[in-house]
């Protein structure tokens, strides 16, 4: 049976698609057959970050409506050969994602894949509900600021009450907290919530902390999942998160401010 994991947040722009790309790439690099599904119908981005936008022929909605087979729509990643992408439609309405249609596709994917990563759109509307409906696990992406935390809390509530697991009375979906865009300097200055604050408010186990970094933006623009930037702290932080998702114990990193060296203090006058 495939593990179905939704990457969700409630709030937009916090790093869901970046996270979906990196987590799925990380899982696939460890040899797990992985597919990442873009649920953001109408505003598709995942194909850009995965650098496969020029290879999209058929999409998720085509498969649901029977215009194409799953194999026709799946795009194989050029860097990691156990990774596939199911792109979203750019032109259709979100309502094209019917519960039955999504179920059919998820079931079919479950037969061949180990991991199904569902990249949720922002908000709590239909697309987001469909993305989390079939999930066994959820990675809740949260920025260390109050409104993002509040929205994450909201989506966690929806996950508990509106997912298939909730409706069937099964065990609730397993929740993971991923704090992104973390800037320890700004936390020290009191401009951001600390990881401890976010964890305490949301009461969800911490999967990882991704430091705020220019590398993330550059990687996205180049169509490269940031986890492949192995030298960067953001890339390493995603690799840690994938390891923890697979049950490995890894110590949390990148949570404290770098001590400024003598020279940088001299030259920046800090």
């Amino acid at each position: 049976m495939a593990r179905i994991i939704v990457v969700t947040s409630g709030k937009g722009g916090v790093g869901k698609t970046t996270t979906s790309a990196s987590i799925s790439t990380g899982l696939a690099r460890r040899g797990h057959k992985t597919v990442v599904v873009d649920f953001d119908v109408g505003l598709r981005n995942l194909d850009l970050i995965m650098n496969c936008e020029r290879r999209v022929v058929y999409d998720f909605v085509n498969v649901i409506q029977g215009d194409a087979s799953l194999n026709q729509a799946l795009i194989r990643d050029k860097r990691v050969d156990t990774l596939y992408i199911l792109p979203a439609s750019q032109t259709r309405e979100k309502e094209a994602l019917t519960k039955e249609g999504v179920e059919k596709v998820i079931n079919e994917l479950s037969e061949t894949f180990d991991y199904i990563i569902c990249d949720s759109p922002a908000g709590i509307e239909h697309g987001a509900l469909m993305a989390l409906y079939y999930a066994d696990e959820a990675i809740v992406v949260t920025n260390p600021e109050v409104s993002s935390v509040r929205d994450s809390d909201r989506i966690l509530g929806i996950l508990q009450s509106k997912s298939r697991r909730a409706e069937m009375g099964q065990d609730p979906a397993k929740e993971h907290l991923l704090v992104t865009r973390y800037n320890p300097d700004r936390v020290e200055r009191g401009e951001m919530l600390s990881v401890a604050d976010v964890e305490e408010i949301l009461a969800v186990p911490l999967l990882g902390v991704i430091p705020e970094s220019q590398i993330v933006l550059n990687a996205s623009n180049q169509g490269l999942p940031v986890i492949l930037e192995e030298q960067s702290d953001a890339g390493q932080a995603y690799d840690d998160a994938v390891a923890r998702l697979l049950g490995e114990e890894r110590e949390q990193r990148f949570m404290t401010a770098q001590k400024k060296g003598f020279f940088s203090r001299m030259f920046k006058g800090g």
Partner: peptide, 8 residues
């Protein structure tokens, strides 16, 4: 025994 989340 579960957290009561925002909106619930």
């Amino acid at each position: 025994s579960q957290p009561v989340r925002s909106g619930q």
